[in-house]
Nucleic acid binder design. Structure first.
Length: 380
RNA sequence: GCAGGGAUUCCCGAGUGGCCAAAGGGGGCGGGCUGUAAACCCGCUGGCUCAGCCUUCGGAGGUUCGAAUCCUCCUCCCUGCACCA
């Protein structure tokens, strides 16, 4: 079987030769990927290791999707400069549900086992936990850049965070993983899994990492930062967000997201439009993708109102206070609305308005634009 | 436990009695430029019934005509020392 296909785009495949050895076993391998449920959405960047899982499934292997409902209570410290916020149990459950649904957009449901790590972690006794903690030293933990940085910078590191890699490692024990996938930021955690598996008398897993996808702001794509493209976002939203990435990222996105090569001399604009279309099509289908592009062309490139402008009722009165109307219609504070008007960012029927109080007749039925992309049709 | 340092507006971070709704940067927003993006330039960035008023500087009290700035207590964080059970 084509190993190159399975390890496409991989950064680390460790240890060397171990994957080949596993493949020679001739049985379906158990390919694990753990996901944190800190936010309700999977985004395009998180899709990358899922695409690897898909590749394994296409070769007949089994995907083990671990929903980190229990680990989310602690929060993965990887790459973090501060502690993560703690989510409520209800939020975790809600997120877990939508997560799986989205992941199944990419992976093959029939060859996927979905497991929650509370299944085994919740039942561990204190003695079990102690045994687990013996497998790693504080010095090993503090070697990690993220911990080292926080420690040196006087930032708090709670002991519970140190437990995170061990919990994730224990997941591998529980599901007897043959391979664990993850972003490059997971390398430490994945390798910890090997150590722990060995200590529990299991054949250690092969570790395969994929690159982190950089977003338009030059940071890694992350739900908490907000520079993400959620698989659940609307077609227009996905399209627009994709178009925000810088031209420099195009090659990388083609390689990682589409798993294709983009020829170096392509027109950036055309390439990006095609990329956006493909990303939307994956979540919403071809038709939606074409519509999303139409919307983008019309609203963003040509600066015209979209086809379907939301309507908003006008309040009573003969003279209307525009800031109040805008704040109501667009969900702004009236102060924000005033600033928008003062800066010439508000148009009624295509004309910039300066007045704060406007006769009702001028607003009734009018198309109102706030900034470049927000539109509303006022109804009386 | 002892000693010292710290908590500021979305984030980082200045500010030690009035000139502070609070410097600067980031982010965001608006405008310009443009092929989407980026870069660049200008402006804005607590709220409101907006030339005025109201609420903010970890929490609660207090001093003062006046406090983010001073005092008291509390909460949380960091560092060093001590502790080695």
């Amino acid at each position: 079987m084509p190993v190159a296909e399975l390890t496409r785009n991989a950064v680390h495949v460790l240890p060397t030769g171990a994957l080949e050895t596993k493949l020679e076993l001739g049985r379906p391998l158990r390919v694990k990927l753990g996901i944190d449920v800190t936010s309700p959405d999977i985004h395009v960047g998180r899709g990358i290791p899922l695409q690897r899982m898909r590749a394994f499934q296409d070769e007949g292997h089994t995907g083990i999707l671990i929903v980190g409902d229990y680990t989310t209570r602690i929060g993965d410290p990887s790459g973090r400069s501060t502690e993560r916020p703690i989510l409520s149990d209800e939020e975790i459950d809600r997120n877990a549900e939508t997560y799986v649904e989205q992941a199944l957009q990419i992976i093959v449901p029939e060859r996927t086992e979905v497991r929650r790590n509370s299944e085994w972690l919740a039942g561990l006794s204190f003695a079990d936990v102690i045994q687990l903690t013996r497998m790693m030293t504080v010095a090993q933990m503090l070697e990690r850049d993220d911990f080292a940085g926080r420690y040196a910078g006087g930032q708090p590191i709670s002991v519970s965070e140190l437990l995170y890699p061990l919990m994730q490692a224990y997941d591998s024990v529980a599901v007897e993983a043959d391979i664990e996938l993850g972003g490059t930021d997971q390398l430490y955690n994945l390798l910890a899994g090997r150590e722990v598996m060995q200590a529990y008398g299991l054949e250690p897993q092969v570790v395969l990492t994929t690159p982190l996808l950089m977003s338009w702001d030059g940071e890694k794509m992350s739900s908490s930062v907000g520079n993400n493209i959620p698989l659940t976002a609307s077609p227009e939203e996905q399209f627009g967000r994709t178009m925000r990435i810088s031209d420099d990222l195009l090659q990388e996105w083609y390689r990682l997201v589409l798993e294709e090569r983009l020829s170096v001399d392509s027109e950036p604009l055309d390439a990006k439009l095609a990329l956006a279309r493909r990303i939307v099509a994956r979540s919403h289908g071809e038709e939606a993708a074409v519509a999303a592009e139409g919307h983008f062309t019309r609203v963003v490139r040509e600066g015209r109102a979209p086809d379907d402008v939301p309507e908003h009722p006008l309040p009573d009165g003969d003279t209307l206070h525009l800031p109040a109307v805008l704040s109501d219609a667009f969900g702004l504070s009236t102060s924000d609305a005033r600033r928008l008007i003062a800066q010439g960012g508000v148009k009624v029927e295509g004309r910039v308005v300066e007045a704060l109080d406007i006769p009702r007749a001028e607003l009734a039925g009018a198309l109102v634009q706030a900034g470049k992309r927000r539109f509303v049709r006022l109804t009386s």
